[in-house]
Design a binder for these strands. Sequence first.
DNA 1: AACAAAGATGAAACAATATAACATTACAAC
DNA 2: GTTGTAATGTTATATTGTTTCATCTTTGTT
Lengths: 163, 163
Amino acid sequence: MPPKKIARIPEHFITERLACAARQCEERGAQLTELRREVLELLLRHGSPAKAYDLLEAMRAEHPRVAPTTVYRTLDFLVEAGLAHRIDALNAFVACNDATHRHHTVLTICARCHRTEEIRDEKIHRSLRHGLQATGFLADSIEIKGLCPACTGISNEDAQSAI
Amino acid sequence: MPPKKIARIPEHFITERLACAARQCEERGAQLTELRREVLELLLRHGSPAKAYDLLEAMRAEHPRVAPTTVYRTLDFLVEAGLAHRIDALNAFVACNDATHRHHTVLTICARCHRTEEIRDEKIHRSLRHGLQATGFLADSIEIKGLCPACTGISNEDAQSAI
DNA sequence: AACAAAGATGAAACAATATAACATTACAAC
DNA sequence: GTTGTAATGTTATATTGTTTCATCTTTGTT
């Protein structure tokens, strides 16, 4: 089993990200409604990739009658607005914590512990862009599956929890 | 709608890939059973990413009582054996047509037409490896979503068919 | 203010994708 | 020929995601 990571998320970080999201939406003429703000907050507090149906459950604490559609619609909005990412490798979603707007998103996803990181190193982005240039392919988002640094050593003992 | 691509797949290519797959399995002590060979053949003939349930239907032409489990298990085997790739972005599978064994797989997936290509250019692989080195992340497979060369021009007219 | 249009949400049904659990068969090793 | 292992069969069920249509809200316009 992946080690349970209880990464304590500081409150000020949440409020700051929410405020930033509000600004971003305003600028783009998008409506960060109460519903959308709540889902984004859940994602931020979750801190790691969250499943749509887990979010649904969480939503129901406040809004007992929420349906899957609502959650998926809201997540679509957040992804569209650049406030969250969908992770195909996990069928899950994470809040985006990169306020700057980049060309494309690059995520690393650990097959063992599911830890997911957004790569922001400009050098890596450049080398990706550069490498792809010859192919004529216009990249939008990139998912890199493998083993995170913490899991590289221990992956053989129990390989059963791979993606 | 994505343009219907009727890429004619030469027969000799299929048989050659199947023979090669048999060799690869033998070398690795894996059993390319009749069932597995058939699924691989379906994948090869399909030529583009195939859904598990489409393969299931196709299987049923010959074996009317095949269940989803069977197909998924067989696909797992093929992926494990390096004979096929799972494409998370599409929930689909493609036959691998790269006999050489690489460190990792790099796929580009067009969000509009779903055309999927395996990048084999060693320069790109190197630059990916190199870029990631600093992060300590050990990459296994990479999915790059975006627009293929053929779709870059026309993506705005009908953006509805994006992934 | 009255209205229309667009955007957002509610609600129910359902479709698509994937796995669990357990039984059975095939085949090699002893 | 018994035993062990890998492969397959079978049924049921879990998970993930979409369609469709109704209703409500906001915004801009006359």
